[in-house]
Computed example of a mutant assay.
Amino acid sequence: MQLEYIWIGLAVILLLAELWAINVVLRSTSGWETKGLWLIILIFVPLFGLIAWAMFGPKREMPEQHRG
């Protein structure tokens, strides 16, 4: 297998992890200032931002789901 395909695969995995993290940040119950800061970090420093978010970010603060 060529080395380029490995790098493409890793880039796709990083992109999917970034999109997932951005989705979790947007759906969290944190204030907009905190959300904005994490979004800036995740977007402009992708790999290290994702690692920092995983270590220091909000821990599963999701709004209550209404069942109807």
Rank of each mutant, 00 (worst) to 15 (best):
M1S: 05
M1V: 01
Q2V: 03
L3C: 00
L3G: 00
Y5S: 08
Y5V: 06
Y5W: 06
Y5D: 13
I6V: 06
W7C: 08
W7F: 12
L10M: 10
L10C: 08
A11G: 15
A11D: 14
A11C: 14
V12P: 02
V12H: 03
I13W: 06
I13F: 07
L14V: 12
L14H: 10
L15T: 13
L15N: 07
L16H: 00
L16R: 01
L16C: 04
A17G: 05
A17R: 06
L19C: 11
A21S: 06
I22F: 06
N23W: 11
N23Y: 09
N23E: 05
V24W: 02
V25G: 00
L26H: 02
L26T: 04
L26F: 05
L26I: 10
R27M: 05
T29V: 08
W32V: 13
W32N: 12
E33R: 14
E33H: 13
E33N: 15
T34A: 15
T34M: 13
T34N: 11
K35D: 08
G36S: 12
L37D: 09
L37I: 15
L37G: 14
W38Q: 05
L39F: 07
L39Q: 01
I40H: 09
I40P: 04
I40M: 14
I41T: 11
L42N: 04
I43T: 15
V45I: 15
L47T: 12
L47C: 05
F48Q: 12
F48R: 12
L50N: 02
L50T: 02
A52C: 10
A52S: 11
W53L: 04
W53C: 04
W53P: 00
M55W: 03
F56M: 10
F56Y: 13
P58A: 07
R60Q: 05
R60G: 05
R60A: 08
M62Y: 09
M62C: 02
P63D: 01
E64I: 09
E64M: 06
Q65F: 07
H66P: 03
G68K: 07
G68E: 07
G68W: 04
